[in-house]
Design a protein around this nucleic acid. Structure first.
Lengths: 186, 186
DNA sequence: GACCATATAGACCGGTCGATCTACTGGTCA
DNA sequence: TGACCAGTAGATCGACCGGTCTATATGGTC
């Protein structure tokens, strides 16, 4: 059996770290993670080799989930590429409004992790994946300059997440959506 | 004499902390700050009451300097409000290209500081100051909706700084400038 | 020359960090 | 039954954390 009926220590540690590192930042202590996950200290080092390995793995699975969330938001919007792109900003608006929204996990990691931390590679790859997702839709729209336009959309997304993190209660994604509309063109 | 010919411990500590907290994050150790500033341990606690006080003061003087930099970039652009606003993005492009650019200091602080840290008040006030600066120019332009437009410009600035931090070598401020042009209107 | 505020140097405090280690537990399977 | 193994529990390690302390040096003012 590779599937478990109950989450094992590895999975408990991953979800606990995903939650705590987002809520309290990368600097959370190992003890807090172990306590939250109800996992023995040793298991962490068996499964992940250390805190850095755990953080990196958290970023990796989060990136997979978040990319899936982008795809899902676009899939739910139908077949029109323009509507699919705008739907991303509608979805983001909801994300930012969630009471425990704390900004972009990957930007926070980029700013807080040591320059040689293996997590950086994960966050950069995630960023490229989202970029390519956007660019593909723009190409489907026959956008004249899909690559720089995707870059602009990414900038709008980052801006909305940053403003949302620093000014709770506002609707930066709605403001970004208006600009995205112009980027997409028509 | 209130002015010194040579910077005193307080000033040395401030500049050292300004540099190190930006380069290595808020999490730098007190020892590293003291060593960099060539200042006795006790002086830190005499002048700032502790690390939190020093960090807060660093944010305060940085905010003053950065607001002055915004004003200077606009002043150098002349009298036309439209040109003054676009000049902000030209200036930002240069800032982002600097080899030691590491993203927005205030966003990093917002993400890394404990929720009850006094530094938060400083960063929020700084954000409002920039916002008001932009809004004033938009009013001078008789922009129909100066407040939400200022919010959008702020979003573009944050987005450019975020992309600049995560994708060195690109020119996000140039991409943001194109969108800013549309926000400002004609 | 005496005085005092300011700064320096650095030992020292309790606490926490990430990491390693031993000893024990419960279930699996030959 | 007994070997095996992943997981648990927790003591312990050295390093570092922010903060307090004493002792000493310096430089300006009466």
């Amino acid at each position: 059996m590779t599937t478990r009926t109950v989450p094992g220590p590895r999975e408990r540690l991953l979800t606990a770290a995903k939650e705590l590192t987002y809520a309290q930042g990368i600097g959370v202590g190992v003890d807090a993670l172990l306590k939250r996950a109800n996992v023995a200290r040793r298991s962490l080092y068996e499964h992940f080799g250390g805190k850095d390995g755990l953080i990196t793995e958290v970023l990796r699975v989060s990136a997979d989930e978040d990319e899936a969330a982008y795809r899902q938001a676009m899939r739910a919007a139908g077949d029109d590429p323009r509507g699919r792109l705008l739907a991303v900003f509608d979805w983001l608006d909801g994300v930012i409004q969630e009471p425990d929204f704390r900004g972009c996990r990957y930007l926070a990691a980029e700013l807080a992790l040591a320059p040689d931390h293996p997590g950086h590679a994960v966050t950069r790859r995630y960023r490229e994946r989202v970029h390519d997702l956007l660019e593909a839709e723009l190409r489907a729209l026959d956008h004249p300059r899909p690559e720089p336009a995707a870059e602009q959309l990414l900038l709008l997304i980052d801006g909305a997440l940053a403003v949302g993190a620093t000014r709770p209660g506002t609707h930066p994604a709605a403001a970004a959506r208006l600009l995205a509309d112009q980027v997409i063109g028509g």
